[in-house]
């Protein structure tokens, strides 16, 4: 464990995304902390405060996990450290299913 102050958090050990707790800039490192978890991840894009970043490579159609539960699926391949939001993930529930 490092003493470096974290700027992103892992909510549940099963999660594959972290949440930024300050505005993070491209070329900066996300310092992600969770229970028994610590990782420094170089960022590919800016991540606004409260928004999500990928902790691993997320292949297209991969389930996105937050709070240890499914919040949606990747619409495209997402790199580690990439910004995760409604441009590259989508929810599954509450909409007309494609025929």
């Amino acid at each position: 464990m490092s003493d470096k102050k974290h700027n992103a958090i892992l909510i549940d050990p099963k999660d594959n995304i972290a949440v930024a707790i300050e505005n993070l800039k491209k070329d900066q490192k996300a310092i992600v902390k969770g229970v028994d978890y610590y990782e420094e991840i170089p960022l590919v894009q800016d991540i606004p405060f409260g928004h999500k970043l990928a902790l691993t490579v997320l292949q297209e159609n991969k389930e996105i996990i937050k709070y240890g539960e499914v919040i949606g699926v990747a619409m495209q391949n997402i790199e580690k450290g990439e910004y995760v939001h409604d441009h590259n993930i989508k929810g599954i529930r509450g909409k007309r299913q494609a025929n």
């Binding site: 919040i71 949606g72 939001h85 409604d86 989508k90 929810g91 599954i92």
Partner: peptide, 17 residues
């Protein structure tokens, strides 16, 4: 339902789940 309010999305919420 996944089409959240603009403020929700700006606040970092991506999906209804």
């Amino acid at each position: 339902m996944s089409n959240l309010a603009p403020g929700n999305r700006e606040g970092g919420l991506s999906t209804v789940e």
